[in-house]
């Protein structure tokens, strides 16, 4: 057990699974490398998540693709239909907009529209979210959109430990998995075992426990929720359950409903815009199945209904933060 960054934890997961299963391969832009004067030149991904794979496994299993997202996803899904276990990398979640058909009309529906004849065990990894001042086209989350599609599973880890275990589960899963990697968390570190381990989908983590308010958060918002919970406890004696569903699809409804049954108060946090997102989804779940447990109206903390701005001051204003979460907790306790 050592302290590792999320980047290194994800990298380890890839190495474990490449080693375990020869059907596993990676295809994406800049994920591998090339030969120059007979010597390998490794790229290993623009964020370094696939480092070492090209040197160890070569071009055959670490495929540097042209900047052709539809072809990348099609190549992965077609190979999956023929028995392979592809991992496709899309550099930024925003760019799935150019291969949306291949994901939502094709991969998500093969098993269903072909009457259960096939599985499509493909993993599509991508970076997600704001915090790097990357502007409107390189900072969106997109996991709410994919969560709305039956046939897909959706994962968004909030820490290095979960990232490794969830990616291993994703690669071993029979169904298509859209795997979101919050780009600001690549350098965040925690204890991560050296060996391979799998974290089951549909089981929330609860990084903080408390009986006063339930906080449900996704991706990097989990860390803001934890900071808010720690501050509320230290300064005011308010105790919060912090629930990290880890997989928006399948969603661990039981853990959320049980917590709300105990606290009677719910704040849902995500860095996506407010409409048709995961905050609205969780709020609707509790309104539908846990309404009688509520002692106060549900509050949500989200980005505004705007694109993601670039300037530091503007992106700071755009993203949720612990202060806004604390204010929401105060409202549900008022």
């Amino acid at each position: 057990m050592t302290i590792k960054s999320m980047r290194d934890a994800l990298n380890e997961a890839l190495h474990h699974e490449f080693e375990r299963d020869p059907r596993v391969f990676l295809i994406g832009e800049d994920v591998g490398g090339f030969e120059k004067d007979g010597q390998p030149v490794e790229i290993g991904g623009v964020f370094g998540v696939s480092k070492g794979l090209y040197r160890k496994y070569g071009r055959k299993r670490v495929i540097d693709a042209p900047i052709s997202e539809a072809a990348i996803i099609g190549a992965a899904s077609g190979a999956a239909l023929c028995g392979m276990r592809p991992i496709a990398e899309i550099m930024f979640a925003d760019l799935t907009a150019v291969c949306f058909d291949q994901i939502v009309n094709q991969i998500a529906k093969f098993r269903y529209m072909f009457g259960g004849q096939c599985a499509c065990p493909v993993v599509i990894r991508m970076t997600t979210g704001g915090g790097r001042n990357a502007g409107a086209q390189h900072s969106q989350t997109f996991y709410p959109i994919f969560t709305s599609f039956p046939g897909l599973k959706v994962v968004v880890p909030s820490n290095a430990y979960d990232a490794k275990g969830l990616l291993i589960t994703a690669i071993r899963d029979e169904d298509p998995v859209i795997f979101f990697e919050p780009k600001v968390l690549y350098t965040e570190k925690c204890e991560v075992p050296d060996e391979a381990y799998a974290i089951p989908f549909g089981e929330a983590a609860m990084p903080r426990e408390g009986e006063d308010v339930t906080l449900v958060a996704f991706g990097q918002s989990v860390n803001w929720a934890v900071q808010a919970a720690d501050e509320l406890r230290a300064t005011r004696g308010i105790r919060c359950d912090v629930i990290d569903p880890r997989t928006p699809s399948p969603l661990d409804e039981e853990t959320i409903l049980e917590s709300v049954a105990a606290t009677g108060r719910l704040v849902v946090i995500d860095e996506s815009p407010p409409r048709c997102g995961l905050t609205a989804d969780v709020a609707a779940l509790v309104a539908d199945k846990g309404f009688r447990d509520l002692k106060a109206p549900i509050k949500t903390v989200t980005a505004p209904h705007t694109p993601v701005p670039q300037a530091r001051e503007l992106e700071r204003a755009y993203l949720p933060n612990p202060r806004r979460i604390i204010a929401a907790v105060e409202e549900v306790l008022a």
Partner: peptide, 9 residues
């Protein structure tokens, strides 16, 4: 594109 994936396999 999907058939390209089959050919890749």
């Amino acid at each position: 594109p999907i058939a390209v994936g089959a050919a890749l396999a």
